[in-house]
Design a binder for these strands. Structure first.
Lengths: 145, 145
DNA sequence: ATAAATAAAGACAAAACTATCTTTAATTAT
DNA sequence: ATAATTAAAGATAGTTTTGTCTTTATTTAT
């Protein structure tokens, strides 16, 4: 569905939203361990979400790390797909046809369109915060081991 | 959602099922043109679907080409994903977590599982033939131009 | 001021994916 | 038999994705 990079971005952002605060920031070390992702690769991804897109906040130096502002937590999860350049799946024809539409439907269009709509709905209407608050120790997990 | 190779495989197979017969086989030339895919790359894909998986039938030489047997047309479209090694999306956690399940759900699990179920249902319950017969000239399209 | 800790930035490399081109084998028509 | 046609097979190459490592910049604590 999504690239590895996008999977890591979603996991990391939801994790940071849940565990990080401006007072207690999370290091890339902690984050990568928690979500089971390669550290340096994840660092690159968080950099992008920080620098270009201002979804995540970061501070360098001792006691530095990553956290999300309350405002960022309220963004739809779609914002992460957008930042990662990986939101095509929310719009695209399942057969990859450029001109597939209601007027020129592909053979799978009528069956697939409702699935795509629900997928888009999920990423557009739900906020980062909503998924972050799903995590309750011992009930919902975000780690991978 | 799927790789380019899988998109071409789905388009080609549905197209061949609709237009090809044992009497009037389709050449790789015709197929690639019709579904707007790179010819040699598509040849490789059809080779795989022919040789290893016996989903498509082929004959070499003059008036040779590709077609589907009636039996093949009745296979679920999932068989194409399987042959292409690209059916992971029907089963996988949206966040890419290995152990995500009802017992150890990821933060998106409860919202996403019904979407994944519908997607799987689509590929498991619908046959190649069903999508092939969706194509009616001027109403349903499979070309890309 | 200096040292330590941490993210940012950049260079590099391995693997996977997409694509092309050439040669070979099989089949048919003459 | 021979020539023509078509898929099969194999070699190669470009691009993207995934990942690592090193150096630099910033911040904090002493």
């Amino acid at each position: 569905m999504f690239s590895k990079a996008t999977e890591y971005a979603l996991r990391a952002t939801i994790f940071i939203a849940q565990k990080g605060t401006e007072e207690k920031k999370l290091s890339i070390e902690e984050i990568a361990k928690a979500i089971d992702s390669p550290k340096s690769f994840t660092a690159k991804i968080l950099q992008a979400l920080t620098k270009d897109n201002h979804i995540i906040s970061s501070v360098r130096g001792p006691n530095g790390g990553f956290y999300l502002t309350e405002k960022s937590k309220q963004l739809p999860v779609r914002i992460i797909l957008q930042a990662m350049g990986d939101e095509e799946v929310l719009e695209k024809c399942v057969l990859g046809l450029k001109q597939c539409s209601e007027l020129q439907p592909c053979p799978m269009h009528s069956q697939y369109k409702s699935i795509r709509k629900q997928l888009k709905e999920l990423f557009v209407t739900k906020s980062i915060k909503q998924f972050a608050s799903e995590i309750k120790d011992g009930v919902i997990f975000i780690n991978n081991s």
